[in-house]
């Protein structure tokens, strides 16, 4: 990987090597729901881990799932693909999947793509649990 700069402005401080992104996934049971807390950035590099975790949950028979995106700072179409795949798998087994996603970049992506009409989206976990 290489970075280059031409012309006269001050050189920006940038380390042009790989910046690994962490994605933390934590699962807990709340009432009769499985809450999957996602922390970090979800993109082409990290979305496979999210996809695999949801597949595991569904295969374990946990089909009432809340994906908590409150600590997600970035989500692109790769992440949306993982969520759509999760919704499809849960629906096929007669379950339910909801998202917790307050105002911010991830919600904007869901809105732009029209997926806010497909997913039940709540601004907090409490609101989701009351739904």
């Amino acid at each position: 990987m290489g970075a280059a700069y031409t012309s006269g402005a001050p050189i920006l401080s940038f380390r042009p090597w790989r910046c690994p992104i962490e994605l933390l996934l934590n699962t807990r049971e709340v009432d009769d729901w499985t809450v999957l807390e996602v922390k970090g950035e979800v993109d082409l590099y990290t979305s496979p881990a999210l996809r695999e975790r949801i597949v595991e949950l569904v295969e374990e028979g946990q089909i009432r799932v809340i994906v908590d995106l409150q600590e997600v700072g970035f989500l692109d179409s790769s992440g949306l693909g993982a969520l759509v795949g999760a919704l499809k798998r849960v629906n096929e087994r007669g379950g339910r999947l909801m998202l917790v996603c307050p105002e911010g970049s991830p919600l904007k992506v869901l809105t732009i793509t029209g997926l806010d009409k497909i997913f039940p989206i709540h601004s907090s976990l409490d609101e989701a649990l009351r739904a």
Binding site: M1, A3, Y5, T6, G8
Partner: peptide, 9 residues
């Protein structure tokens, strides 16, 4: 000359 930044990935 305009500032130009390039990154090869």
């Amino acid at each position: 000359m305009a500032d130009r930044f390039t990154l090869e990935l």
